[in-house]
Design a protein around this nucleic acid. Structure first.
Lengths: 110, 110
DNA sequence: TTACTGTATCACCATATAGTAATGTAGTGA
DNA sequence: TCACTACATTACTATATGGTGATACAGTAA
């Protein structure tokens, strides 16, 4: 690794990975990546209940993955961390690569 | 987001983020990114105890982040997933960017 | 004020998991 | 065989956290 990472930095990195380690939060982020949303819209689009969505949004906001704007009764959330999409893409690409390796192994009978 | 990600894919992505969400595992990966290691070497370099290191290695291997080669009494581990370094770098860059934003805000008194 | 709505928070339970001591297993050498 | 080493696994505890119903809070409108 280019930079030697201190245990303190690694803890902060781990903490950010932890926030991304819940399917429910990724569902929320995935919706938000298509554009800002109110909480109710997120409830509709994710199928999660309102308390649950609010709780996840709270954590996502505390870790600066999303930000909130208030408009009357509504809380409008949007993605604040431009790296979210990239991180998911990298993970997704690896999943695909592994799937290909696996099917190649099965195919050649290796 | 370019690709619409199904809930199933998001679960797999979340699972991989979860594996990276432990400081102890990041410490191990961070050492392995500098080159393959035996378990004892990892114990020495991370300060974790042997059972703990073995358990984390088990999980890292089950999720294909590392791979193992046996040589006599030794188990030699190495990083198997080329994306690990990139993922940590992205996270680290974001932390730095946020730190800069913060100090800029404090600096201008904005 | 009252009534309604959208969102946040609280309290609780159930589950998952990190850490660890003890034990098991496998390879090596005498 | 026995003894030693390197590693893996088991059993257990303590803690953290996701989901949820109930409730609180804030904005709007009458």
């Amino acid at each position: 690794m280019a930079k030697p990472l201190s245990p303190e930095i690694l803890e902060q990195i781990a903490e950010r990975f932890r926030v991304l380690s819940e399917p429910a939060r990724l569902r929320i982020l995935n919706v938000l990546l298509d554009g800002e949303c109110t909480v109710s819209e997120l409830v509709d689009q994710t199928g999660l209940n309102q308390a649950n969505v609010s709780k996840h949004l709270s954590l996502l906001r505390a870790s600066s993955f999303v930000e909130r704007r208030k408009e009357g009764l509504y809380s409008i959330y949007s993605v604040a961390d431009p790296s979210v999409g990239l991180l998911c893409e990298v993970m997704c690409d690896r999943l695909e690569a592994r799937a290909e390796e696996l099917s190649a192994m099965l195919g050649t009978g290796s």
